[in-house]
Amino acid sequence: MSGLHESASQTAGPYVHIGCMPNLAALGAMYGGTDLGTEMITGEAQGQRIAVGGRVLDGKGAPLTDALLEIWQADHAGLFNSPSETRGAADPAFTGWGRQAADGQTGRFRFDTIKPGRVPWPDGRLQAPHIGLWIVARGINLGLHTRIYFGDEAEANAEDPVLRQIGDPARAATLIATADRDRYSIDVYLQGENETVFLDV
C-alpha cells in the first residue's frame, strides 16, 4: 500500500486556456509568446510528418469548443523523449508531447506531429503505432485517457494488445483514426452509440 492518497481531480473548467494556453487566451505575450506544446517538431525530426485532427463530441453530438487536449507519443523509432526512457535516445528534434485547444467556434483540434514507431508492450508483444490522448474540459471531472490508432495500419492494429483487450471490433474502432495519406482524422465521442473507449491507465 502507498502511504498517501492521490490528490482529487477537479474539472479544468471553461477557462483552462488562461493557464495552459495563455497566448491563445489573448493574455499577451506570456511565456515568450508561444504556448507550451503547440510545436512538437523542433528541428529536422526523423520520420513521416502527419496531421492528426478531429473533434470531441458530447452526448447530443455537439462538438466541445472549450476542451483542452494533450497527446504523448513515441518518436518514429518507438522511443519516448523522456528521462524515464531507458531503451535509447529519442529524436531530439521531436518532443513527443503536444497540447492543443479545441477551436472556440468549430470544436476542431489538430496536431502536427510524426507518425510514431511501434513500442513493445510489457509482455514483449509489439503495440500498433498509436498516440496517447488526454482530454480535459468543463464537465469532465477527471481527465480522460484514450488512444489514437491509425486506419492504415490494419495488420498492426489486428495484433495490438490494447485493441485486442477491448475485444468488440466496433468498440475498438472508436480509437482508430481514418487515414487520408498523411492526414488522420478522429472524432472522440464522450457518450452515445459510438462512445469512445476510455482507459484507466
Binding site: 513515441a74 526512457e85 513500442v119 508492450w121 483487450q165
Partner: peptide
C-alpha cells in the same frame, strides 16, 4: 450530464507510454 462517458473505463497495464 452530456460529457460524462457512461461506459466503464477499461483498465489497461502501464507500458512505456
Amino acid at each position: 450530464a452530456l460529457r460524462a462517458p457512461l461506459q466503464p473505463l477499461l483498465r489497461v497495464e502501464n507500458g512505456w507510454g
